[in-house]
Amino acid sequence: MSDRATDPTSERAGDEKPRLKEYEGEGITVTFEPRRCLHAAECVHGLPEVFDLSRRPWVLPDAAEPARVAEVVRRCPSGALQYHHRPEDAVAEPPDSPTTVRRNPAGQLVVRGDLVVTGAYGDRHETRAMLCGCGASGNQPYCDHSGPCAEPEDDDVPEKR
């Protein structure tokens, strides 16, 4: 298991290449890309025994059944958390089918499916991503809350379609 950084959610926009942290368990490995985390807290609310920001390492994949860990990781809307099972199983996160794209009330594009996202570091195969809808992100094409989506959420804002 590895956890090289002190703060699991910090990474500066000027870093050369996106950093990917790996938390290896017996039946599942969870990866985390801090720069893509938008703090939706699906992980810490879904499985606090696995995901706990007050501890180091903050991810303990073996603290729950692999299927449950995978279920909670799939709730991560930004795609900052991903998973794969043991290499010999060759089972990775299956993409949603059909692929869906929706704009949330903050203007971000929530995309799920069999994706190829092209950014500063080339093409990346993804199953989930939160893409910038305003053009202000320093982590294009992913949202980083640096534009209008950083404003406090307003429950009265109608969802744009």
Rank of each mutant, 00 (worst) to 15 (best):
S2I: 08
R4A: 09
T6S: 10
D7N: 14
D7L: 09
P8E: 10
E11M: 11
E11C: 05
E11R: 11
R12N: 13
R12Y: 11
A13C: 04
A13M: 04
D15E: 14
D15C: 04
K17V: 15
P18N: 07
L20M: 13
E24Y: 03
E24A: 15
G25W: 01
G25A: 09
I28W: 03
T29H: 09
T31L: 12
F32G: 05
R35K: 14
R36N: 03
C37P: 00
L38W: 05
H39K: 06
E42M: 08
C43S: 06
C43E: 05
V44C: 04
S54K: 13
R55W: 01
L60N: 13
L60V: 14
P61D: 08
P66L: 02
P66W: 01
R74N: 11
R74D: 15
C76P: 00
S78K: 01
A80F: 01
L81D: 00
Y83Q: 08
A90G: 14
A92F: 15
P95T: 13
S97G: 11
P98D: 02
N104V: 12
P105C: 01
P105G: 01
A106L: 14
G107F: 10
Q108M: 15
V110N: 02
V111T: 07
R112D: 10
G113T: 07
G113C: 10
V116W: 01
V117M: 05
Y121A: 12
G122S: 15
R124W: 05
H125D: 15
H125G: 15
R128Y: 03
A129E: 04
L131M: 12
S137Y: 09
G138S: 11
N139L: 11
Q140Y: 02
Y142H: 15
D144C: 10
D144F: 08
D144H: 07
D144Q: 08
S146N: 06
D155C: 01
D155W: 03
V157W: 02
R161W: 03
